[in-house]
Nucleic acid binder design. Structure first.
Lengths: 181, 181
DNA sequence: GTCTATAATTCGATAGAC
DNA sequence: GTCTATCGAATTATAGAC
């Protein structure tokens, strides 16, 4: 099939995101990604240089965090938990970060950067003690990422069985305490 | 160096645990493990058959969970958090399960089995509603594993900076609520 | 018990034709 | 823009000498 270069780049990137999300960095091979995209492996190199370049493009994730100062303070915990559930079930971005960040140092560095740049400032704007903002953001990350790990990656049966409402009801108060109490 | 077969097996297993913990399943090569152990790669095959056999031996982890019915009920959350901190900083067992379980399905299955067999019954013995025991164990896993992920694997700076006491003080009440409230 | 040699794959990456 | 062909390196795994 004949495409424009932009189309080809996009097709490759979509396949790459799915593979990195499903398999992690090492097992997501250029050959497999090219096969999914229905093109030759050399096309991947042509447009992204090497595997690292492709990964960098695939792992460019925006958490799309909501403005927590615009909602009632007692609702920030539940709101953030619900938002991350949407993010996890929406696209592969979070899965890419988690699956690759665990065995790839540059991916872990990217994960640190994303949380420092996006979750950190959000928590800081919530007010309270500025000196504690980083700590509170870190605590929040442990609970949010832990839920994602158990539910979407390790697939622990009792965690998979939980409904969306159950998760918000149980984790909401935890994140509320970490964020604002 | 000349050893007995038991010694050689043990030397290989020690090196394998460190490599699997540090690199995950894919990047922990038999060659690297053999090199660490100071022997030839073929020795690994001789004693463990193949890479899966070696991994099975390396990932045989006992959480060594304490009997929570023997301590005051209001202390179970803090006690469990402290125990897992010890486990994480004690040997490579937990790190192996986490690093490999994220990109290897058989390792994830092993993780599910270990938590179902060891954490589940522990929570069930705490009493309360038997129908909720699995849910409570799952919730506990999300917070415990999430802390480990952020602190020991992703190394998020504010989480790494926390002292042992801070972790127990912050996570203790969370796990207490998941376990027994 | 230890090692050499090597088979059989698989992977990332390059060169170049069309 | 797409593909064939291929290189060079790395991996798991096997066969067999000492």
């Amino acid at each position: 099939m004949r495409r424009t270069s932009e189309e080809t780049k996009a097709v490759i990137l979509t396949a790459a995101r799915e593979r990195f999300a499903a398999d992690g960095y090492e097992r997501a091979t250029i050959r497999a990604i090219a096969s999914d995209a229905g093109i030759d492996p050399s096309m991947v190199m042509r447009y992204y240089g090497n595997k690292d370049g492709l990964f960098a493009a695939a792992a460019d994730v925006d958490l799309g965090l909501p403005d927590l100062t615009a909602i009632p303070r007692e609702e920030v915990g539940r709101t953030l938990v619900a938002h991350f559930l949407d993010r996890w079930e929406g696209d592969e971005g979070m899965m890419i970060l988690l699956r690759t960040g665990v065995t790839n140092e540059s991916a872990a560095e990217r994960m640190r950067g994303i949380f420092a740049a996006q979750l950190g400032p959000l928590v800081a704007r919530l007010g309270s003690d500025p000196a504690q903002a980083a700590l509170r953001a870190g605590l929040t990350a442990t609970q949010i990422l832990g839920m994602a790990l158990c539910r979407y990656v390790l697939c622990l049966p009792p965690v998979v069985a939980m409904s969306r409402k159950e998760i918000v009801d149980w984790l909401g108060p935890t994140v509320q305490r970490y964020l604002a109490e």
